[in-house]
Design a protein around this nucleic acid. Structure first.
Lengths: 116, 116
DNA sequence: CGGCTGTATCGTAGATGAACGATATATGCG
DNA sequence: CGCATATATCGTTCATCTACGATACAGCCG
């Protein structure tokens, strides 16, 4: 049903050709940033969403709702939290929205956590 | 003033001789664990506390209160959150309490974040 | 055009979080 | 013993989070 390609719309998760992140991993700003990112991730549903988006190497759309035991509006709220933290991106794809991981933010998160 | 050694009381932060963590980094349990750990870290004050405890390679005690612009009771609450998440430990050291990072939990957090 | 579908937003209710001051508890000291 | 110090806990207030249903909105399809 529907189009056979519901994924492979956003940028690839494994973006390798980008410049390295030169921002410091310490200091007050970095602390704030780490707190913001971890807070956004600090809910089981949002962890699940991130894993879904990472596992499928492309992004999926509202299929996320089907994977979680939550109402559509609730999932949309969680997606908004992740988006506002910069961890994911939502590209409008016709009537639906295609979410995908923002590789830079994910790498940044790993760097900040790794600096502890 | 007081005793010249207010630190160097808890276990070393760099515990190298421990067995590797064999728990899976995926699955529902891991998702819950990651959410719990990141939620605990998801506040600027708690990030600062973690950094304080990590930077001093040994643990410090109530000096944390002096470093943060928060009331003593508030700091104590944040320490409780971190402790309940397993990220730090508090060893009673006479009249004070000596907090230090729990290296296993920190490594676990890094592994879980790294698995994303 | 008009309806269908997918998504976001609104409004609301209950739960949790953050911060503080006040107070309790425990330990060492004189 | 009684006081001083260090930390935890209590009680409270205000803000934020979580979840839901209802509804609004936007694009496609017939």
């Amino acid at each position: 049903m529907a189009s056979p390609l519901k994924k492979d719309r956003c940028a690839p998760v494994t973006a390798k050709g980008e410049p390295p992140d030169v921002r410091p991993v310490g200091g007050v700003d970095a602390d704030e940033e780490l707190a913001t990112l971890t807070k956004a991730l600090g809910h089981p549903a949002r962890v699940q969403i991130m894993r879904l988006l990472v596992r499928r190497e492309a992004c999926i759309c509202g299929d996320i709702v089907d994977e979680l035991p939550l109402a559509q509006s609730t999932v949309s709220q969680h997606l908004k939290v992740l988006k506002e933290a910069g961890l994911i991106r939502g590209d409008i794809d016709g009537p639906r929205v295609c979410y995908c991981v923002e590789p830079r933010a994910l790498r940044r998160l790993k760097a900040l956590v790794g600096s502890l």
